[in-house]
Amino acid sequence: MALHRSSLDLIGDTPLVEVSELSSNPAARLFVKLEGQNPGGSVKDRVALAMVEDAEKAGVLRPGEPGQVLLEPSSGNTGIGLALVCRVKGYHLKVVLPESVSPERRQLLGVWGAEIIESPGSEGSNGAVRVAQALAAVHPEWVFLYQYANPANPRAHYSQTGPEIWRDCPEVTHLVAGLGTTGTLLGAGRYLKERNPAVQVWAVEPPAGEIVDGLRSLDEGYIPPIFEELGGSELLDRKTVVRPRESIEWVRRLADVGIFAGLSTGAAMAGAARCATQLGDGEQAAIVVISADGGWKYLSSGAWTGDIDDVAERARSTIYF
């Protein structure tokens, strides 16, 4: 291992591990990219660092100048990644966080000294976005990086995550990842398709809209601006919803091969398993799954040891993507 001068230098270049023993189809090899190995514990460290550095290059943030404040809506991981980057660089971060996130997310934000502004749990991440936008409008002096609309988000995955996958697994046929801000799939997916247009990009999502009961009508829905601006619907080949129970079953299977991953990884693995069962006759596949984070933040959910029905029921009302 090399000597690093800063924890921020540890962001990216995450390991890819083969887990084909979990594949039900011998023609489909499975690989997991462990983004939980980033110093802040998730794939969002990449996005956080990229957005902050982008703002520094643009002169919006001025390194070393005291009193600079950033504001960001997040269901957890982006907030945690930004909190780490801001702590190291000396910026003050305010994270708008839905009340319904797991307690570990709140604690981790505390570790890095971020200030938490709560948004109604019943509105899910939509509520966090709404509250942050309203605050940004009355506080133009705060830097609002806004991961959902910030091109540095997908760019981080286009310039790093995608090339890392191509370097480590040039035989990749499918990329499967969770869909949150959509940045991972937009960036890494586009890079891989440019290298090999036959690569299929599969998005997995939780049934989040089922539990967000604070919506008054469908007109209050939300699509991340980057997804529409960067032609997300043309880029994706498939989008599939995975429910909490199946996500939990898959994190347990991952534990069998020594991988301790978060619930969204379980969902992505379930998506990869569906993909493996749908291959044509004689088709060989190398499916790369992005594991967004490790299992640490989900221990309180009981995902590995609790009664699966109880855990699945609790997961229905907690944001875990």
Binding site: K44, P73, S74, S75, N77, T78, G124, S125, N126, A128, V129, Q147, Y148, G178, L179, G180, T181, G183, E205, P206, P207, A208, G209, E210, V212, L215, L218, E220, G221, Y222, I223, P224, S233, L236, D237, R238, K239, T240, V241, V242, R243, F321
Partner: peptide, 30 residues
Amino acid sequence: NDDDVRYLESLDTPVKEGDEVSLLPAVAGG
């Protein structure tokens, strides 16, 4: 059956006996 029809055949996606259709609002994640 949990596959988004926009990435199948959209409104022309066929349904067969026993299929389960679900509707979900588009909401933010991340």
